[in-house]
Design a protein around this nucleic acid. Sequence first.
DNA 1: AATTTTAACGGACACGTGTCCGAACACGTG
DNA 2: CACGTGTTCGGACACGTGTCCGTTAAAATT
Lengths: 336, 336
Amino acid sequence: MKHVSIKDIAKELSIAHSTVSRALNDKYDIKKETREKVLKKAEEMGYYPNPMAKKLKENKSFNIGVVVPEFRNAFFPDVILGIQDVLLSKGYQILIMQSNEDPIIEESNIRTLHENMVDGLIISLTADSHNVSFLKNLSNKNFPIVQFNRVSDKLETSKVVFDDYTWASFATEHLIKQGYKKILHFAASQDIALCKYREKGFINALKRHKLPCNKEQIVPSGLTIEDGKKAMEKVLESNMDFDAIFAVTDPTALGAMMVLKQHKIEIPERVGVVGFSESRLSQVIEPSLTSVKQPTFEMGQAAANLIIQEIETEVKVPQVMTLGGNFKVGKSSVRL
Amino acid sequence: MKHVSIKDIAKELSIAHSTVSRALNDKYDIKKETREKVLKKAEEMGYYPNPMAKKLKENKSFNIGVVVPEFRNAFFPDVILGIQDVLLSKGYQILIMQSNEDPIIEESNIRTLHENMVDGLIISLTADSHNVSFLKNLSNKNFPIVQFNRVSDKLETSKVVFDDYTWASFATEHLIKQGYKKILHFAASQDIALCKYREKGFINALKRHKLPCNKEQIVPSGLTIEDGKKAMEKVLESNMDFDAIFAVTDPTALGAMMVLKQHKIEIPERVGVVGFSESRLSQVIEPSLTSVKQPTFEMGQAAANLIIQEIETEVKVPQVMTLGGNFKVGKSSVRL
DNA sequence: AATTTTAACGGACACGTGTCCGAACACGTG
DNA sequence: CACGTGTTCGGACACGTGTCCGTTAAAATT
């Protein structure tokens, strides 16, 4: 059970531990025969370096903190797989924390990770992270931070984002081409940049096709199934006239669809629905949901590569990576 | 950016670093005034202990490895939330690794975690983990391991499991009471104990109600949506007579439902379907899926408490915790 | 053969923390 | 005043690793 140290090897061979260290690290000041003798003995005794000692010595934890707002949808687990894919191969571990969509927990998570001396932070903010002063403070002290997905304009770090504007515009256009004319957008908090851009993309598409674009068409909602349900119910109660919905996320779209189905409103015949990424439910629900697909795994890889670069080169030039996606047409938006 | 050490505080106050250490740890050999002076200075200089040094000194990483077979369904993320809930409050971090349902990757994950000197391991095995010799080896060396959910009978460690037998029996009985008579079980690998118990529970319920129970009724399938689809297609091709399905997991049930819907076979009128935990999709699909619910969060908490106990008391008495759940009746199994 | 160069290794130190032991001093008691 | 007792602190050491510097002995040069 006890760990074999280089001192144990040294004692066994009656040499100094510094010699063993040189042998294992393939340094100059060492005779070939000695080196081989040491390597053989190390193998024999089942030696492997104590990571704690190495971390203390190099003053580097080889840990990267990952903070995500939630764990309920498939989106963040998928991104984490991408992050892990890159970081593990480079000898880093990741510490994952989730904020439960609560900015208070989020800040506590960041503090915990920082006190545990992670070498860097990859973060996607909660919906209500107005106050990013703590992160800003860290960033100013040259602490490596990479934001992804839900990023803040107030925080100048490297970012990995999706081209929300273009794809929201594209998704809206798809509805227009299918003949829908009175399209609503179920929107969420403007504090999250991606929501803002999706809304702008929506508006732009309507204007380009000279369709009406009133304020009522932007329905305040949120990112969850519950938010979608509530917004849909409110719209139905108000007797608003509409024939399609472009929702800010898949869960929002799903919530809306569930309420529509309860009211026996046919999809896509009477109302067309298009969602946006973030959920695997979209393929299971009936009718299948038309949606923009984000490259989640690649997003994780990109974020990981950026943080590694920042840590290992120690130069901080914030760069923004914008990824593209693809459009998956389901039955929820295609009239026969 | 540089970390403030107790030596820095000592230098500042012109005392020995050992005195500072005593003051901060509230040990006896210290005068009150000195202690207060040190605490004040520490606060002032923004001191917090270097976790790496502590880990090296105590030969303890305060990290717990968590290995799960997949990340695609909500089940494991939910369990991890429970694990985190307990461990974070006790000063431990968790390193999460996923095995992608591959026993080779699984073993490599375990190795990586062990070489990083995690203090213990919480693990749920992949579907094909026949060979648990590496884990057995660790366990024999008194390395703390707790299994949950997918456990192996070949490995004697503490375990947190669900009472699969009872609840599978209960779920099957529900179908029987609804008047279904020719019930199939979509099963998965017998290497996973929970699959075995769910199958046994199914058989037991049929026998108790004196219903036919042939080998054909046990349909070999798997744990994923794809497995459910394939098995369902095979059953339909074979023209087997049946009126209900009890599936080993929710994804399996969902796959079956999707194929049934493609063939315009009405659920629950012509075929009733019941699933088993592990997915949040069940509430979204139409008709909503009747399913056994496991207390995922509590399962994580229980596993975390067991591992802490094993680490901190250093006595190893394998104990098995069996959790109960509840039964959520949806529309997929209720005939009007 | 005397001197310089080179190879190979041992010992000391450092990272930040915690603990053990002994020293210094104050205080009380005989 | 001498001795014992208790308090408070400094110094040395340890955890496992890596690096620097100095030392030794052998090889190469003059």
